[in-house]
Design a protein around this nucleic acid. Structure first.
Lengths: 211, 211
DNA sequence: GTCTATATAGGGATAGAC
DNA sequence: GTCTATCCCTATATAGAC
């Protein structure tokens, strides 16, 4: 779930489907199926804590198979997981924020998709976990880009919704920080409702549509 | 720095000083001097990533010395670091929130002390780092207690400042989450100003004193 | 493409000299 | 109280059989 490709393969001949797949960069190779499982291991144990033993247990594959699929080892696994996460957010969150005709709809969609993705607070943010640790320096671009493009897309939607430039910048920063912090607090207290409450309050801080 | 004991040993005879030390639990043993250095290693590399090799480099002590001082190994080191952090916040942040005659003064003091402690965003929160990783389960009480008592002390100050019970609970949660999230974003973007901006905006969300 | 060795390095931890 | 030397285990990674 939450992975790429859930929306593919709907109605197309063999040729059309292949084109579609390439166009959307949907990967049906065995590696693609592993990425969500790898993601959960990195999320739970962090980059350093995610040992190959834990990874073999989570994936059901031996080390030999893993290195066959990811010759670059753990680093490549994490890099591909980050790429997949980025693509998911680009499609499900950033693009709607930028493209939806009605900016409030895009913002509402962001809150829904985010709540889903983080399982209403039961799941932490892998990019946040990496950002806080030493792994940040090994995955700088992915970590910076994720938050940067999220903030930028959200600020743009807020501006389109009528907010002044400075206020849109500030509120987008507040909302992103509020979500990340709520994930920290939720996991610290082992109480996922902290995240739901925070999401709700942040949605309320978005100025309503005039008229 | 930012550790315990900076305020001790000011003006007291040998006996008075000893009493003072015990009363404040100020520890002048060599172990106490190591805790800040250990803290920085755990903060930077996380619990799993903080290898004894890194720790020996940061402290200038060999493994033998470290195990002489901390027979419980890495676990004990981390536990004592967490205790020291907790004591520092209890003294510099939680107690002022609870005890200051003027609640707004306690809250203002919290923002100043927090800005200092996190070096205006250049430093991440060790408790937050632990909370997000697998170490949380090994240090549950310390991790839960830290955020819990902070939130509780802040909510109490907000109530004393005139806020309704429910609003005080919500705002205290927002402020804690906002700070933690801002530390994540600041480190992700490698831009500590994100934290300062967030602190300022959160201070503005605290209702002003009436009159 | 998957597995079972195996190689090599680094992990945490201990013993014992000084 | 500090060091060096060492133990044993687990880490990542590779080779090669199937």
């Amino acid at each position: 779930m939450a992975g790429a490709g859930a929306a593919s393969g709907r109605r197309a001949g063999a040729f059309g489907r292949a084109v579609l797949k390439r166009a959307q960069k949907t990967d049906t190779s065995p590696r693609a199926a592993l990425l969500p499982k790898l993601g959960e291991v990195f999320r739970t144990y962090g980059y350093e804590g995610a040992s190959l033993t834990l990874i073999t247990a989570a994936t059901g594959l031996g080390k030999g198979s893993l290195y066959h699929l990811f010759p670059g080892g753990k680093q490549q696994m994490a890099a591909e997981v980050l790429t997949e996460i980025d693509q998911w957010f680009e499609r499900e969150v950033f693009a709607p924020l930028r493209d939806s005709a009605e900016p409030h709809a895009g913002i509402a969609h962001m809150f829904r998709a985010t709540d889903d993705y983080f399982r209403s607070g039961r799941r932490v943010c892998l990019v946040g976990v990496f950002a806080l640790g030493a792994a940040r320096d090994e995955f700088t671009d992915a970590v910076q880009g994720y938050f940067d493009r999220w903030r930028e897309a959200l600020a743009q939607a807020l501006r389109r919704a009528g907010q002044a430039r400075a206020e849109a910048m500030e509120l987008s920063e507040d909302i992103l920080a509020g979500m990340q912090g709520a994930l920290v607090l939720a996991r610290a207290a082992d109480d996922h409702k902290i995240f739901s409450r925070a999401l709700k309050r942040m949605a309320e801080r978005v100025p309503k549509r005039v008229g």
